[in-house]
């Protein structure tokens, strides 16, 4: 799907922009379950479009980043906002065991602490929904963080998606 919609840009550059305002990002990730329960169409559309950009590598590569690195950045956002279930159609799903151990997301790095006094108030629920513990994530701050290498067939994946008109070659 190209280009990205106004709704998608507004939410990615707004509520879900951890680069812009960290407390807003934390609050948005914590509010997603309630927004979905209320049937907020903007969030449903955002979720569906995010999954498509991950599937097709169709979000333009960020400055000084590869397309693969950009896709991985969106997978972290998916986990933070929509939880542990792999986005539909993701050709390179993240192994479930990576989250919170070798793979730390912006929400984990900014909202989780081993003590309640340093954690976001919604962190306990956020962690429980993802089957993680504060102690586990906090411990991971001192341990391995491994970026997945670009898969061997990734160039083919990009070529196919470009030829099918699902993405623009950057």
């Amino acid at each position: 799907m190209i280009p990205r919609s106004k709704n998608f840009r507004g939410l990615l550059g707004g509520w879900f922009s951890v680069e812009t305002h960290i407390p807003g990002y934390i609050e948005a990730c914590e509010r997603v379950p309630a927004w979905l329960a209320e049937g907020k169409q903007e969030i449903i559309d955002f979720r569906d479009e995010l999954a498509v950009h991950i599937r097709d590598s169709s979000y333009p590569a960020l400055p000084s980043m590869t397309q693969w690195g950009t896709d991985e950045w969106l997978r972290d956002l998916w986990f933070d906002a929509f939880g542990p279930d792999t986005p539909p159609g993701d050709p390179y799903p993240v192994p479930a065991a990576d989250w919170g151990t070798t793979r730390l997301t912006p929400y984990m790095l900014h909202a989780v602490d081993e003590d309640d006094e340093g954690s976001s108030e919604g962190a306990a629920a956020w962690l429980a929904q993802r089957d993680l513990t504060a102690q586990g994530v906090y411990g991971a701050f001192s341990h391995e963080m491994i970026r997945r290498p670009e898969p061997a067939d990734y160039a083919d994946h990009l070529r196919r998606a470009t030829e099918a008109g699902l993405r623009e070659d950057g």
Binding site: E19, L62, S64, M65, G69, L104, L109, F141, S142, M145
Partner: peptide, 23 residues
């Protein structure tokens, strides 16, 4: 911290440095 991945690495180092003395 010139790129987003480098910035993430750095944030994690900062989180680590903020832990208790001794660890």
């Amino acid at each position: 911290t010139g790129t987003p991945p480098a910035a993430t690495d750095w944030i994690r180092m900062r989180n680590d440095a903020m832990k208790k003395d001794g660890e």
